[in-house]
Design a protein around this nucleic acid. Structure first.
Length: 511
RNA sequence: GGCCCGUUCGUCUAAUGGUUAGGACACCAGGUUUUCAUCCUGGCAACAGGGGUCCGAUUCCCCUACGGGCUACCA
C-alpha cells in the first residue's frame, strides 16, 4: 500500500536559475534533463526564479531565460512563464506560488524564526572584517575556514542589547554534530562528517535568504520530488539535508541528482573566455535548437545504443537517470557541427526555409539581391530561396552558412577568369564549342520544362564521354567559381534567362 | 591546505571477471562524382600508474598521480 502511494505521487521538478544574465549552456543542459525526466514520467516542469542576490540581478534576464527555454522546445508547465505566449509579459501560474523568490521573503523569515525558536539557528553579528580576519588566521594555520561560532556564545541579554542598538546581523544555521549521509541518484552514497561543515548563513542582513535556505523551503513547499543540479552543489548537499532534517522534512525531501560539469577543451569548467557559453550565442550562430538539444543531451548521458541523432521526443522516450554519467564532458564543437549538419539534412525545405531566412536577411548580399532583383512577387522570391536551400541543404552545418559559399545565386557580378573555364587539357576552342553547345541545348528547353532532372539529362546526353570538358566550363560560366554545386543544380536555380546570359557572357570573355 | 567527486582512443562514449576492448566525431587514405559537399570503404588511436583479491583483471578493493568542484551576507 505504502509503495502504491509512493508511485502515485506526481513528479515535480523545478529549474531554478538566477536572473543574472543570459542562460548558460550548462543551465540549458540542467533544464533539458529536468524536462526529459518530467515528460518521461508525466510530471510537471516548473520554472522558479532565484533572485535572492539583489546585487547580481540583471533586468530582463527572466524574459531572456524563458525565451531560450522556449527556443529549445522546453515547455514550462508551472511557475514563471509568458502570458499567452506574449513575450515580455511575465506571470506566474500554479498553486504553489509565488515562484519568484524575492516575492517570498515573508515565508523564509517565518521558517527562519521557527529554527531560531527551536535553537537550531542563531543570530550572528560578526562584521565582515572580523570574519575575513578569522579566515585568514585559519588559513595560515592550514585549517579549514569555518565560522568560529563566536556569536553562539552571546547571552540573551547581549543579543537583545545588540538588536536594540540596531546592529546588523545574519542568521546562521547551527550544524548539528554527527555524520550526514545521503544517496545521490547518480553519484551513489555519500557521507561526510558534520564537523567539516561551516554554519551557513541562511538569512542575510538585508532580510533575503541565501540559496541554502530558500531552496530547501521552496522545494518542500512546492512539493518538488527531484532536484537536478550541477555537481558544484554536491559539496553543500549535506547542509541541505541537515536543513530539511531540522524542519522535520527529511522523510519527504526530494531525491538528489547531481550532474557532471560541461568542460572546455582544457578540461576546465566551461567559461566565457573559451568561446560561446550562452544559449543565445548558439542560437545566433545559426544552430537548430534540435541540434543543441541533441548535443547537450549526449554530454553526460548516453542511451547505451549506437544511435547518435535524436529528436526531442526520442530523447524523452529513452531518457533514464540510470544512464547518466559521473565524469565531466568536454564541449566539442566539431561534434556539435556534425550533429547540427545531420539535423539540417533531415529538415524539410519548408522548415529549413523558415529557419534560415532570418539569418539570410542579415546578409548584405541577400539584402542587395532583394532590392535589385525584382522578382515578380513575394511568392517567386520565396520559391527561389527554397531552390537555393534545396541545393545547399547537404552542405550546411548552421543556418548562418546559407548562401555564403554560393553568392552567385544572389549576385550577377560573377568574376570569370578565362583559365578557370577550361577543364584540364581542354583547349580554348573546345571550351568555346562546348559552352555554345550547352547554350543551344538548354535553349531548347522551355521555361516550363526547366526542371532539374531534365536539365541534367539533356546536358549529359550532349556532353558525351568527356563530360568534364563541357560541365566544368559550364560551372565556371554560371558561378565564376571552380567549386560549387553541380552546374545542373545551379542552372536549375538560376532559371533559363540568367543561365543563358551567363553562358553568353562567358563566351564573350573567351573571345 | 581541508573536504567531496571523477579518470576507456585527441573528443563524446559502449561493453566485459576470460573480447582482435565496440561505435561516433575529428584526422588520414581510397572510392563515387565535372569540382566542392554529401555518400561509401578502409586506416590511425584508449582501459592513468602501482599494489592487492582471483586460475585470470580494463572490470572488484586499496594507495598514488592527475583532473574537477566546494571551502562568500553568489548561486
Amino acid at each position: 500500500m505504502e509503495n502504491k502511494k509512493e508511485n502515485q505521487k506526481e513528479i515535480r521538478v523545478r529549474f531554478a536559475p538566477s536572473p543574472t544574465g543570459e542562460l548558460h549552456i550548462g543551465g540549458l543542459r540542467t533544464a533539458l534533463t529536468d524536462f526529459l525526466f518530467v515528460r518521461k514520467n508525466r510530471g510537471k516542469f516548473i520554472l522558479r526564479i532565484e533572485d535572492t542576490d539583489q546585487k547580481r540581478i540583471v533586468p530582463g534576464a527572466i524574459e531572456r531565460i524563458i525565451e531560450m527555454l522556449e527556443w529549445a522546445g522546453i515547455k514550462i508547465d508551472e511557475g514563471v512563464k509568458f502570458k499567452n505566449n506574449k513575450e515580455n509579459t511575465i506571470w506566474e501560474v500554479g498553486d504553489f506560488g509565488p515562484y519568484i523568490q524575492s516575492e517570498r521573503l515573508k515565508i523564509y523569515q517565518e521558517y527562519v524564526q521557527k529554527l531560531l525558536n527551536e535553537g537550531k539557528a542563531y543570530r550572528c553579528f560578526c562584521s565582515p572584517e572580523r570574519l575575513e580576519k578569522m579566515r585568514k588566521t585559519q588559513q595560515k594555520r592550514k585549517e579549514a575556514p569555518k565560522y568560529d561560532r563566536f556569536c553562539l556564545r552571546l547571552t540573551p541579554k547581549e543579543i537583545e542589547e545588540k538588536i536594540r542598538k540596531k546592529e546588523p546581523y545574519v542568521i546562521r544555521f547551527k550544524i548539528p554534530e554527527g555524520k550526514t549521509s545521503f544517496e545521490d541518484l547518480v553519484y551513489g552514497k555519500i557521507e561526510v562528517n558534520n564537523d567539516i561543515l561551516d554554519d551557513p548563513i541562511i538569512l542575510k542582513s538585508d532580510g533575503f535568504p541565501t540559496y541554502h535556505l530558500a531552496m530547501v523551503v521552496d522545494d518542500h513547499l512546492m512539493k518538488i520530488t527531484h532536484i537536478f543540479r550541477g555537481v558544484e552543489w554536491l559539496s553543500s548537499a549535506p547542509k541541505h539535508i541537515l536543513l530539511f532534517e531540522a524542519f522535520g522534512w527529511r522523510a519527504t525531501m526530494p531525491k538528489l541528482i547531481h550532474m557532471p560539469n560541461i568542460l572546455n577543451k582544457n578540461r576546465k569548467k566551461l567559461s566565457k573566455r573559451e568561446g560561446s557559453v550562452s544559449v543565445l550565442d548558439f542560437k545566433n550562430q545559426g544552430y537548430p535548437p534540435a541540434a543543441i538539444v541533441n548535443f547537450i543531451a549526449l554530454l553526460g548521458w548516453n542511451p547505451k545504443t549506437e544511435q547518435e541523432i535524436f529528436t526531442l521526443d526520442e530523447l524523452i522516450d529513452q531518457f533514464d537517470i540510470q544512464k547518466m554519467n559521473r565524469a565531466g564532458g568536454v564541449f566539442d564543437i566539431d561534434r556539435l557541427n556534425w550533429i547540427s549538419a545531420q539535423h539540417i539534412k533531415k529538415m524539410t525545405i519548408n522548415d529549413l526555409y523558415e529557419n534560415a531566412l532570418p539569418f539570410l536577411r542579415e546578409k548584405d548580399f541577400y539584402k542587395n539581391w532583394e532590392k535589385e532583383n525584382k522578382l515578380e512577387n513575394e511568392e517567386a522570391r520565396k520559391e527561389y530561396v527554397k531552390k537555393v536551400l534545396k541545393v545547399e541543404r547537404d552542405r550546411l552545418e548552421k543556418f548562418t552558412q546559407t548562401g555564403e559559399n554560393n553568392r552567385f545565386f544572389f549576385s550577377d557580378e560573377i568574376n570569370i577568369i578565362p583559365d578557370d573555364l577550361r577543364w584540364k587539357n581542354s583547349s580554348n576552342e573546345e571550351t568555346k564549342k562546348n559552352l555554345s553547345k550547352a547554350m543551344e541545348t538548354l535553349n531548347r528547353l522551355s521555361e516550363k520544362e526547366w526542371e532539374l532532372a531534365r536539365i541534367e539529362k539533356i546536358l549529359l546526353d550532349v556532353a558525351g564521354e568527356k563530360r568534364g570538358d563541357l560541365l566544368f566550363p559550364l560551372r565556371a560560366a554560371l558561378t565564376g567559381q571552380k567549386k560549387s554545386p553541380s552546374p545542373f543544380e545551379v542552372a536549375w536555380v538560376l532559371g533559363k534567362d540568367k543561365t543563358l546570359s551567363r553562358i553568353k557572357n562567358a563566351l564573350s570573355i573567351l573571345e
